[in-house]
Structures are given as C-alpha cells and as structure tokens.
Design a protein around this nucleic acid. Structure first.
Lengths: 130, 130
DNA sequence: CATTTTGTTATATAGACCATATAACATACG
DNA sequence: CGTATGTTATATGGTCTATATAACAAAATG
C-alpha cells in the first residue's frame, strides 16, 4: 500500500499523502484511470479524519494529477505540462544545498539520474489498488 | 543583496533566508569565511524581528553551513559531506512530480544540469557582503 | 423514485507553528 | 569596563493543521 502516515515525518499529513500519490504515479504503480480509495475509506485505513484525506485529494486535483467527483470518487488523470517556475526554484534550492556541501555538478546530475530510476509509465489503467 | 523577504512566498520567512544563504554559497557569491550581517542589522534592513533572523542563522548552523558565535557573528563555514536520506527523498518527490506530468527522465536530468549552471566556488573569503 | 455513496461546504475547537515583543543574560572584543 | 553580538526566557496574536459534527449536493444503484 503506497499510502501511509509517517509520524516522524515533519511534513503535514495531507502533504505526505500528496507526495506519495505523485511518486506512485511516477513509478507507474498507478496510472491513467486508476481509482484511489475513497476519502472515508482511506481515513479509516490510516486513522485520519476524512477532511485531511479530502484535503490531500483536493491539492492533487488542483495540481492536475487527479480527477475527483461526487459519487464517482478520485482517479488518476494527469494534466500533462512542463514544470512551473516554482518547481524550478525548488529544484535550484535543493541542488544548491548539495553543491554547497561539496558535491560537484556531475555528482549532482548523477544523483538526479539515479533518483529517476524506478520511474516508469503504468502499463494500463487498473481498477483499484492493492 | 541576496537576502530579502518575499511576501508572496509561502515559505516561512526564516526558511526563505535559509534558502537564500544556501543558494548564495552554491553560486559562489559567498564562500568560506564570508561574514553575514548581524542578526540585529539584518532584522533592521529587512523589517523583521531579530529572533526571526536568528532562527534562520541557527538552522543554517545546525545544517552545517555557518559558524555562529557571540560577538563574532555569523560566517560561512561549510561542513562538507554527502546529502542525507531526507535530501534524496525530497529530490525523488520533486522529480517524480515532473515525471508524472509527462517529462522524460532525460529531460529531467537536463533540467537538473541546467539548474546547476550558475553554481561555482567562491574565489576567496570576503570580509562582508555588498 | 428512494436509498446509498461519495465528495463538498460550513462552523468550531485545540494544538502546533510562526513572527513578534520585551527583557535579560553570556560571551567576546576593543 | 563598556559595547556588541548571539542566546535564553516568557509571552502574545495570527495562521496552519487535524479533528469533530452536521448537513448538503451530486450521482450511481436497485
């Protein structure tokens, strides 16, 4: 199950869920059309309030990863497009941290390449998650 | 001046300052030994409370970018070392977001390489900032 | 058409986080 | 010894996060 709550994680819970969905899409674990658990079901599974789950789903909808509708639930439906300025700014800060600590540009690029290993397109839409 | 406050930025102010110092080190604008403005001076310059600035400096000290001492102030003194697991996790999430939106691994690596352009080692220690 | 299911909206509370404020202390320099 | 700079302490107010209760709206199902 790719959705879970890490108490030791400093990110707000809704942000953790958002990040986990994004990574699952990138790894091809879920793809176009895959349905996610309902907000109430996932809340019960993870011991959360369904508003918290709904907040994660809404963020993912705003960012263009999910399609969410009443009665039909949430499913993956990615609005493709290049990263925005904020993404580039976040990338710069993150890579700057490594460079400032002594990593070379080439080592950084290698780390980035390694980070994308494991990414892949999902073969086909799935009905639900295991 | 590489330290400023962006009201539209969603990051807490102390985090913005932290990120700006890290980027300035990576770009070679400041290097080993460079002194930063005192917490009181920078607070006045930016219209902040000096506790807020001190919080940014303390975070940078904990993460190993600055050396801070009473009366002597803060200066760049980087504790070199490979990125930690949290850095790798943040990188994965960030790159996953781009991949999920349709970017290929090669395009992502290219974006990372471009993000490191502009990085460089500072020529020599400087007394203070312009 | 009624019921059920699922997301949405509204209001409220409590705790954590953030920035500020005031005050004082501790260390180090000149 | 006075000054400068960071550190610690306590407090306040606003914002954010997660939860809680309640109800509504849309859509699917039988």
């Amino acid at each position: 199950m790719f959705l879970y709550v890490e108490d030791a994680d400093h990110r707000p819970v809704y942000q953790q869920l958002r990040d986990q969905v994004v990574e699952a899409i990138a790894r091809g674990e879920i793809g176009e059309g895959t349905r996610l658990p309902t907000t109430r079901q996932l809340a019960v599974d993870l011991g959360l309030n369904f508003h918290t789950v709904a907040r994660a789903y809404d963020l993912l909808r705003q960012e263009g990863y999910l399609q969410v509708g009443r009665k039909v639930g949430a499913s993956v439906h990615v609005r493709r497009g290049p990263p925005n300025a904020e993404w580039h700014a976040e990338l710069r800060v993150l890579l700057a941290a490594a460079y400032a600590k002594g990593m070379s540009s080439e080592e950084i690029v290698t780390a980035c390449r390694e980070a994308t290993q494991g990414f892949g397109r999902a073969a086909e839409p799935k009905d639900s998650l295991a």
